[in-house]
Design a protein around this nucleic acid. Structure first.
Lengths: 164, 164
DNA sequence: AAGTAATACTCAGTGCCCTGACTAATCGGG
DNA sequence: CCCGATTAGTCAGGGCACTGAGTATTACTT
């Protein structure tokens, strides 16, 4: 009955990996602040005053999702939204004192969690782990920005030509 | 300003990988049927008459999530839910003709998508890719079922002792 | 046989993630 | 100067994923 083996499906693997991370994050880092939220805090520590779109781009979230995440962080008083006087469409985001405090606290815990998360791999394997995942993600990500006009999968009718 | 580099965070990587997969799935496999839904169809093709809990276990979804997924598949007429006469708590799930048809169609497309998804890696690297992700996931997954009583992270106060 | 524990499932609540349609503001060309 | 893009953000809607609480049914234990 081996006809259908989930473990051969990279998508299933990706999902499991994220679940695993979610679990560890929840127990070792924070139950209130999620990993994407922390990524946003991170981006604003690195550069204050960014607008939503830019933050979303840096942490890999689309406009709708980043809006939700930022709204939640705002409700908790971790950041402020101020209209950019230079451009009335933008909001300028900056962390509050509390936001900075939370970021500092979670930074330490995140580092520890990452160690535990990657503990089953040797140093060499960890480097490989990063490299392989990044390459696969970048390639797929690249398929949506048809840079120099390669022949690509089209969105409507899923797939027509021969593959690979 | 390198103080905060997302690409060093495995959690961020895991999220990106899943987004990448989601994107490819949506364009190359199906817009109606999601990857977790396909996993459920898969499980029921491999063994018909399973109950929700078991299916959830096999595809890696908790009781609430699997209930939603199955409800959606049921609404679309891809599977039937029948109370188990032997055990009034269980539902026995089996695919309809339409469910089988959809599964067959998507199986082909999924195989093609997986090839494209993994194309940036050599055969050797692909094997490594599977192995590394699986080991990390298994280890984290194992932390929640404290099998033979190793010293583990506790849920309440996040973490006290030294790491690693 | 009765009462407790375990099990399968449901429901409410929160959060992430995407698409598609919309509003408001700015920018560019004629 | 004005009119048509482009751009930032919102909103509605669908789906995945988890926790915690609750219901019904079965199994265990005395």
């Amino acid at each position: 009955m081996a006809a259908v083996d989930l473990s051969a499906h990279p998508g299933h693997l990706a999902r499991r990996l994220q679940q695993a991370h979610y679990l560890l994050w929840n127990t070792m880092v924070s139950e209130e602040t999620t990993s994407p939220q922390f990524a946003v805090l991170n981006a604003l520590v690195a550069e204050s005053g960014l607008d939503q779109r830019t933050v979303g781009e840096r942490v890999g979230l689309d406009r709708s999702t980043i809006a939700e995440v930022i709204s939640r962080l705002g409700r908790r008083g971790l950041l402020d939204k101020v209209r950019d006087p230079q451009d009335g469409r933008r909001f300028m985001l900056r962390l509050t004192e509390e936001g900075l405090r939370v970021h500092r606290k979670l930074t330490v815990r995140t580092a520890r969690m990452n160690q535990v998360f990657l503990a089953p791999l040797s140093g060499e394997e960890q480097a490989l782990f990063f490299d392989l995942i990044q390459r696969v993600s970048d390639a797929a990500e690249g398929l949506r920005h048809p840079g120099s006009g390669e022949p690509l999968v089209t969105r409507g009718e899923p797939f027509a030509g021969g593959v690979v």
